[in-house]
Design a protein around this nucleic acid. Structure first.
Lengths: 120, 120
DNA sequence: ATCATGGTTAGCCATAAGACTAAGTATCAC
DNA sequence: GTGATACTTAGTCTTATGGCTAACCATGAT
């Protein structure tokens, strides 16, 4: 219910930057504080903060501050929604239904909280 | 072999614009000349041309000029490659292998010309 | 040859993106 | 309470993006 529908504009925009994709990849392995996330990029902290802002606005990550450190973690549902959009397009582009079937299969396999969510 | 490896930067950047996604959607239903592609957008031709340039550079579409009209069509392989990247990330994010399995299944199911293409 | 049609090039403008430095705020460790 | 640590905020800079108009080139029809 807390799903403020994902905005493809923001999501794709966020994914279009290699630094951000790298940060996401690192976040895929677990939550990480801002500083650690920043170090491997070689960028200044404010720059990283901005990237995080973009990712958070796109709902690809969530952050939470505890004491003086801010933890960042990935939001899989958003990536899932994006994958769904792509799968849909692919099904259309390839002009047949079997792609869509396979994709629906994966949906059924997870069949948990973040369901099909046919909003578009 | 004519696959000038897809660049995720360009692809996501291209997908981040709603106008371009709309053009892609239309292109999903078949090849269309520039003019027709432009009309529903309400944008000036040069603007549309630029969008097409972005899409073409990202290899999401291909265009070919015949006489004085230029035909545009979608490049499904590129979308597939992108979907693959997303599926990979999703598998990682969700911290287990069953996603990846499901995804590999779909790869096997198509198992035609545009296969896994482990060139990256 | 002339003209309309369909696309292309060139150039302008406004806004947004990505990066930085410098200075500020808020913990936590002494 | 001092000082280090971990972010934050503010402001600047450069380049890219998305939109336009105006003028140009190429092709098809008359």
């Amino acid at each position: 219910m807390a799903n403020h529908d994902p905005d493809l504009n923001l999501i794709f925009q966020a994914l279009s930057d290699p630094t951000r994709r790298a940060m996401l990849a690192r976040l895929g392995k677990g939550a990480v504080p801002v500083g650690e996330l920043a170090r491997p990029t070689g960028l200044a902290l404010p720059t990283v903060m901005r990237h995080l802002g973009v990712l958070e606005q796109a709902q690809l990550i969530a952050t939470e501050k505890t004491g003086r450190t801010r933890m960042c973690r990935a939001r899989p549902e958003t990536l899932a929604a994006t994958a769904d959009w792509l799968a849909e397009q692919r099904a259309i582009w390839e002009g047949r239904a079997d792609r869509l079937e396979a994709y629906v299969m994966t949906l059924m396999q997870r069949g948990d909280a973040d369901g099909p969510d046919a909003d578009d």
